[in-house]
């Protein structure tokens, strides 16, 4: 049995919140640069150039890349041989509170979806627990902006809709979103499971390095095909037209019921932020 103190979790979450909001992951930066080089449409290229300059300023000055510093999505992979000393859930919220206040990050969370009073410290975090073998603890903080979150969709397809139905639904979600989620976007897709599991898979897909394809060659090919199809839509950066609508498509799948084919599409903007640490 390994002991981990709750205070260490607070400190890690705090640091991850601050760093994730200023430092764009390397794979996303590479993709923006590559798309900039390959973009034939002038206005689209200008916009990609400004997007590049923006993340460089954020990194250099250690300020948020985007003012929507998101709701803090915190993913934990907890080894089953780990014991936490203290209150785990409160330790995570405290890390978010300290990170968002000290980091001068925007407080974007309301306590109730209908009375809409701001909690003023960006808590609570959205927490996702996963129990795994071993005695490790991996923490990932992904600040999720809502311009893109609002453009996400889920649908319970019929098994007879099949692969073509899945492809059509992914394209529909991107088409419906148009310029709203700040393209170029990263598209997370969850296929299978239950209503809620499909949505979770779509979010989990957005955590994957965009240079890593699905381990299953069938789904890796589907990711490549959908990226090509999405970029053929011509929506372009910020919706002004162009070749660069999406930077990547990541798909996660799992088993499902004989009667169902759930599909969820979770959209991220070009500020696809996540940072992890292993304690």
């Amino acid at each position: 049995m390994r002991e981990i103190n709750a205070q260490d979790i607070t400190a890690a979450v705090k640091r991850l919140c601050m760093e994730a909001n200023s430092y764009l992951p390397g794979d996303i930066k590479e993709r923006i640069c590559k798309c900039y080089e390959n973009e034939p449409w002038d206005l689209a290229k200008n916009i990609l150039g400004i997007i590049k300059e923006n993340y460089e300023i954020a990194e250099d000055k250690y300020v948020p890349i985007c003012q929507d510093t998101g709701v803090a999505c915190v993913f934990l992979e907890i080894g089953q041989d780990v014991h936490i000393n203290g209150n785990l859930e409160e330790a995570i919220h405290q890390g978010v509170r300290e990170g968002y206040i000290e980091g001068c990050l925007r407080k974007s969370v309301v306590r109730d979806p209908l009375d809409r009073v701001n909690t003023t410290d960006n808590t609570p975090a959205m927490i996702y627990y996963n129990i795994v073998p071993g005695d490790g603890l991996k923490l990932t903080v992904a600040p999720k902006g809502f311009g893109s979150e609002n453009m996400s969709q889920i649908k319970m397809l019929k098994p007879s809709d099949g692969l073509e139905g899945v492809k059509a639904f992914i394209l529909k979600a991107v088409e419906d979103a148009g310029p709203n989620p700040c393209p170029p976007i990263v598209v997370g897709v969850g296929i299978g499971g239950t209503f809620d599991k499909a949505a979770f898979l779509a979010k989990k897909a957005l955590m994957r390095d965009t240079n890593v394809r699905n381990a299953d060659p069938f789904y890796a090919d589907l990711e490549n095909e959908m990226l090509e199809k999405i970029n053929a839509l011509g929506i372009g950066p910020q919706g002004v037209g162009g070749k660069t609508t999406a930077l990547a498509v990541n798909i996660e799948k799992m088993a499902t019921h004989i009667a169902g084919l759930p599909v969820a599409v979770n959209i991220n903007c070009h500020v696809t932020r996540h940072k992890s640490i292993e304690l």
Binding site: I47, I50, I51, E53, N54, Y55, I57, A58, K61, V63, P64, I65, C66, Q67, D68, G147, C182, Q238, C269, H270, V271
Partner: peptide, 8 residues
């Protein structure tokens, strides 16, 4: 430009 908050 959405997402260019640091520059703007």
């Amino acid at each position: 430009i959405g997402g260019a908050g640091a520059l703007l």
